[in-house]
Amino acid sequence: MKLARDTWLTFQYEAGQLVHNPVSVAVSLLQPITYLLFFTPFLKSVMGASSYGDAYRIYVPSLFVAMGLYSGLFAGFALLAAIRQGVITRFRVTPLSRVGLLLGTELMWVVLVGFQAVIVTVVAFIFGMRLPLISLLLALLLLAMMVLIGVSLSYFLALFVPNQSLLGNLINAVATPIGLLAGILIPLSVAPLWLRDVALWNPFAWAANGMRAIFGGHAGAQVVWEGGVILAGLAAMAVVASSRLFTREIS
């Protein structure tokens, strides 16, 4: 009960910082919207999509995976900033549940990325992409699990490499192969066989396949459930591991 209350309290406080600073939220939307507006036309001609609606159907699922992966992974920077400003220390000397502190912050990231995804969907809708509401909700669920995995991984890295510039390089070193092997820039279908075998071990590749199926109108496809189960298991493990990390000493 206390855990739920403290999670909600932390979420309210962290989300409140965002609500009171809408400019930072707007800036965080720039990248996905830019990709949406400028990358999709390329894709339309390369993939030979018949309409913009079709091109968005191909690209938006990739963009969701990219947003889940990158937004999650960069959460470690915010954690380092909070530690440097002494905010985490101040929270940790109060009776606030330390697991609640972690979960509330992770929830804030899930909601922020979810919000970005909804905006992206609205823009894509304006340009002709159509998607049943239930499919969108399913896609958002997959996205939420990706964010949880990304944030946990990022916190893990941030607490072991408490140095901003090194963390940046490390996150890029982790994110680039995961992103490439999820086929979010170039589809894995054009990759050589050995690369596709490697990608079988990449949960984000499963997520990307599931996302594409959902946007392609096959929300009930096997690949969606497979991806969902893999992500759910991994997200649960990631959250447990990072809450252990959070209850340790943080200096």
């Binding site: 910082q17 009171h20 600073n21 930072s24 909070a82 440097r84 400003q85 002494g86 905010v87 220390t89 101040r90 000397v93 109060t94 009776p95």
Partner: peptide
């Protein structure tokens, strides 16, 4: 933790909060 208060040397607030 319930019975003490602690003020670190570095403070402990976000610059964008109030």
């Amino acid at each position: 933790r319930e019975r003490i208060g602690f003020v670190a040397q570095a403070g402990g607030t976000y610059g964008q909060s109030t």
